[in-house]
């Protein structure tokens, strides 16, 4: 692969905020050009080096993917290549989900977490909060995290064979939804044992955020995904 070869990043464009991801991804500068493909059909997926699953309604995205014949190709993609899921995308990447629609819904899996849909409740409980992150550019500048009917990560248990989990951002336990609040014995409200406080994590080449970096003007998560997930995966596969 030559220096000028573009990195191809797909954005699943079934439903949701895919155009917003596109705008931020266009701002990211790495040594190779980035080509963005909106994924609506199976053919679009084959050429991608990495994939973003945007926020939207997880039930809608899953159904449209099924109707477009994308479900199995997506599952295979997740096994082989880097994927980043934001909010609804994070639910789809989960191994298990709670609060699913009646009769259950399809997930893609790929990340060893369990999520609870709409963990904070309805839209009036949606919020934004500036959080510090580990591993992004300019770690001392907080990232404005926008949570819209966001899922809550209720369990993180990497299996013996899967890569370790790296926590990127946590929320203060005080901001957790009612019923999930941790009664802290000590002053430290970011107990590393509490998965509910984790709002951004990475496992191997996959990235999960329960909030929406695509609703900000801040491209640091997009840069992180390209530089820390997609590029290293391309290096390995050489």
């Amino acid at each position: 692969m030559g220096e000028g070869n573009p990195i191809v990043i797909g954005i699943l464009a079934m439903q949701g905020a895919f155009a917003e991801h596109q705008v931020l991804l266009q701002k990211v500068r790495v040594e190779r050009p980035i080509k963005i493909v909106l994924i609506r059909q199976v053919e679009d997926l084959a050429k991608c080096d990495g994939l973003i699953i945007p926020g939207g309604e997880s039930t809608t995205i899953a159904l449209l993917a099924r109707l477009a014949g994308l479900t199995e190709p997506l599952r295979e993609f997740v096994q082989k290549k880097p994927v980043w899921g934001t909010c609804a995308g994070a639910i789809l990447l989960s191994k298990e989900a709670e609060g699913m629609k009646k009769g259950g819904q399809e997930l893609l899996g790929g990340v060893d977490i369990k999520t609870a849909r709409n963990g904070w409740g309805s839209q009036v409980e949606s919020f934004e909060a500036p959080l510090y992150t580990e591993g992004l550019r300019e770690p001392n500048r907080p990232f404005n995290c926008i949570f819209i009917r966001a899922p809550v990560i209720t369990d993180i248990t990497p299996s013996a064979l899967s890569p370790p989990v790296q926590i990127i951002a946590r929320l203060s336990a005080l901001l957790l939804p009612r019923g999930q609040q941790i009664v802290a014995e000590d002053e430290d409200d970011t107990d590393p044992r509490d998965p509910q406080t984790v709002v951004a994590l990475r496992q191997g080449r996959h990235l999960v955020t329960t909030f929406h970096p695509e609703l900000t003007k801040d491209d640091r998560f997009h840069e992180f995904f390209v530089k820390q997930c997609v590029l290293p995966a391309l290096e390995e596969s050489k």
Partner: peptide, 24 residues
């Protein structure tokens, strides 16, 4: 490195849900 305050019902949160409905 304390986290800041959270804000409910901001315009970003309100318009954000509409953005999640796009293409739907």
């Amino acid at each position: 490195r304390d986290v800041g305050n959270s804000h409910l019902g901001t315009f970003g949160v309100k318009s954000g849900l509409a953005q999640m409905l796009k293409g739907g």
